[in-house]
Nucleic acid binder design. Structure first.
Length: 302
DNA sequence: GCGTCCAGGTCTACC
DNA sequence: GGTAGACCTGGACGC
């Protein structure tokens, strides 16, 4: 059954720029169909029901959001799916202050004009954290492989044959041996296992991060308490929470910054920090949009 | 075909 | 608090 969802889109929303905001759109269970400009995502409603969301044009400001389920979803389930559909696009994020700030600087005024900055998120923060751990110390192609194997091994099949991201419980019941030998997570295996077990047991309320209004410093510290989450991962997870106080530099960002601002010669992190420091609580987002600016002018790499 | 390097880093031990 | 060394994997590259 197909149900049309009608989330409330902020006035500055831009569908394509949100979908391609970073690499998440290229990681299962997200699926991109470039020809029809459709983003699909198979997910659980949080109450055991599986469905597939399809976001598509015709409008960049108000895309169509359709939910496909086996049978008719209850009103409760529909509300849960609708909340997750909005969460994925981070529709409750208010970027007006951010756009006002970047308009003050001619180098970055394009950010407001293009309505960029809203970042695609997984249906749950648990999925965001696991995927972020899988991006560490490896190539992007290896991240894609590990994520795909994790879903194949523990994911839940939907009506359309797609598979949604594993529940924490499914991974928690597994073992480090399986995560190493079957999913081939390498040294990341114990990190993902411990995270899944803490979440499954209730010791860690990972989804509470999405409602947290604590200072960024505190959230960063709490995220770093998760094994396998260091400064890079914590900083970039904060961006998915709408907090941009940290740059979250990785080797790709450093190389891109050097290419754009220093003729390709490497630049110390302290200098990169200094470059974006005037943007204060927005500096992490300005940095990310600066190093990915070509994506919006030329072609998205996903 | 084989060895080496390194990629969207993090942890631990040690100072 | 700062730093060196170990850590899985797989693709790219040189030979």
């Amino acid at each position: 059954m197909i149900t049309e969802l009608r989330p409330r889109f902020p006035a500055d929303f831009h569908f394509e720029h949100t979908v391609y905001s970073h690499g998440w759109c290229a990681l299962f269970p997200f699926r991109l169909d470039r020809a029809s400009q459709t983003l699909s995502c198979t997910l659980e409603d949080g109450n055991g029901r599986i469905g597939t969301l399809r976001y598509s044009l015709p409008s960049q400001k108000k895309p169509r959001v359709a939910l496909e389920t086996r049978g008719t979803p209850s009103s409760t389930s529909l509300a849960l799916f609708a909340a997750r559909a909005a969460n994925i696009l981070h529709l409750n994020l208010d970027l007006r202050m951010f756009y006002a700030r970047v308009r003050e600087d001619a180098r970055f005024a394009w950010i407001a004009e293009h309505r960029t900055g809203r970042m695609l998120r997984a249906p749950t923060f648990f999925e965001d954290v696991v995927k972020m751990i899988l991006t560490t110390n490896c190539s992007w192609s290896l991240t894609e492989l590990m994520n795909e194997r994790l879903i194949q091994q523990f994911g839940i099949p939907a009506a359309d044959g797609a598979v949604c991201f594993p529940r924490p419980e499914s991974i928690a019941e597994s073992s480090e041996e399986i995560l190493r030998s079957e999913v081939r997570l390498g040294y990341r295996a114990p990190f993902v296992l411990e995270l899944a077990r803490r979440v499954a047991s209730g010791a860690l309320d990972i989804e509470a991060f999405r409602q947290a209004d604590a200072p960024a410093l505190e959230l960063h510290r709490a995220l770093r308490d998760i094994k396998g989450v260091g400064d890079y991962a914590a900083s970039n997870l904060l961006k998915l929470l709408g907090r941009y106080d940290y740059l979250g530099l990785d080797s790709w960002c450093r190389a891109k910054f050097a290419e754009l601002h220093n003729g390709g010669t490497p630049v110390p992190d302290t200098e990169i920090e200094g470059y974006y420091a005037p943007f204060e609580e927005w500096k992490g987002l300005v940095m990310w949009l600066d190093v990915t600016r070509q994506w919006y002018a030329l072609k998205f790499p996903f």
